[in-house]
Design a protein around this nucleic acid. Sequence first.
DNA 1: AATCAAGTTCCACATATCGGAACAAAGAAA
DNA 2: TTTCTTTGTTCCGATATGTGGAACTTGATT
Lengths: 270, 270
Amino acid sequence: MSEEPTVIADGEAVGTGTLGKAMAVLEAVVMADGPQRFTDILARSGQPRGTLHRLLSHLVEEGLLVQRRDLCYEPGLRLLTLAYRSWSGNRFRDVAEPHLRSLHELTGETVHLGILRETEIVYVDKVESRQTVRMSSQIGKASPAYCTGIGKAALSLLPQLELERLVAGMAFHAFTPHTHRSAESLLAEIADIRRDGHAFDREEHEIEIRCVAAPIRVSGSDLTAGISVTGPAYRVSMEQLIAWSGAVRTAAAAIGEEAAIRLGPGRGGP
Amino acid sequence: MSEEPTVIADGEAVGTGTLGKAMAVLEAVVMADGPQRFTDILARSGQPRGTLHRLLSHLVEEGLLVQRRDLCYEPGLRLLTLAYRSWSGNRFRDVAEPHLRSLHELTGETVHLGILRETEIVYVDKVESRQTVRMSSQIGKASPAYCTGIGKAALSLLPQLELERLVAGMAFHAFTPHTHRSAESLLAEIADIRRDGHAFDREEHEIEIRCVAAPIRVSGSDLTAGISVTGPAYRVSMEQLIAWSGAVRTAAAAIGEEAAIRLGPGRGGP
DNA sequence: AATCAAGTTCCACATATCGGAACAAAGAAA
DNA sequence: TTTCTTTGTTCCGATATGTGGAACTTGATT
């Protein structure tokens, strides 16, 4: 619900040769709101007509897109299948899962696992109580790092130089009145997070939603991640979050250590 | 658990030009069991060294693969994100969802929604009771059509010629003692399914698992799909499945009609 | 009929890909 | 240590592929 208007002006130089262009077009279609006509994509992608047409044909042949009878393009099923395999084969998630569960047992609230990718957090797993909501609703979702608990926690692990590089590239969109609006305030909070070992989301991404998060570092790997406990403001006070912060830090540390062992030595067991 | 040994000998002529090769390599890595070394992929993909190396670099640059410190390649997060968008933006699933829920209310067992892609069924949604199991465990999973209820139901909607073309390309792997072993027996059952309007899975894919399924046809679209109610044999008798078959057919028909309306006229509402 | 827009096809040209072979780096054996 | 072997990376000329402007359908609208 807190989605930007996003006109997606394709930004700067498109990616790696041919594949880069194909992926840019694919993304333009997938990230759009509904089925896309040829002309829509033409405008959005900036590619010349002939080129675009060929790219789309290839994407359809590969099953990454589907062309409907009315000529609209939609995401194809192959994406789902690829993602299914890469998710169910993800060992890091596998290691983390029991810890997410026990954190959920303890708190009764929703627990997330997220991985930092550049300037965004990608949610990789989730344990929640009431399954009235769509089940895997968030898996694969990417949110800005600067306004999420996990995001800020993960950022706090980066070397200062790297951090500053990333922050420089952020566009601070004000999702709520509490969202960080500048690099300075974000960097200041990250300094605190480094000291405390945990981060809060004080209704910064979505109003009425709070969380407490802790960063995960896996020695020997360069992935940066985090976990969080999230709840609605009416049920979860800041005091409550502070009370949980120790458990969250402990769980995060445990995941980090276990992952370092199970992910390190080659491609290990089952 | 019922996985083939699959040495994936890349089959015949690789796909559409450059993109096709890239996707073949990507798939080789994603479908493999664990992190893959360069040499593993070299053997599996059949590409020459130089070419493969460049392809892998590009896939990494695009975020479709990740190269770890130990040089192993793994699926990248971008796949998850793409799949998240294409799943949550899928209107067909959206239309079907309430029907899946009410079918679940009625039966108390797990309900699946699947779409036919060539000779496989791809699971697109799932409603289950106990969430002790991994939540979205099946979304995106592809199973052979000939040994699943939804698969056989969906096949029954195809024109005979198309059906025979597909069946000709199937390799009948015997997952259980009850799995179809030949085109003849499959085609015979499909004739029955056309007559009855529903299909059963009599422990054909996994032992101790049964289901009843009905096909979904969406007029004006060329997608072929199905829904099923699945349960463990000890709890769900064949008589029980027969008793549910009417409700399953009704739900399938309702989904088909509603989808025809909501998917037809352009790119519709919210 | 005439007009306009959307989508598809064509083809001379440029360039990204191809893939063998040489090169570097890291282990394993001697 | 030195030598041998295995694994990963880089190079570069030949050429297949992709490029993109323009011409050509198709079909809706006036």
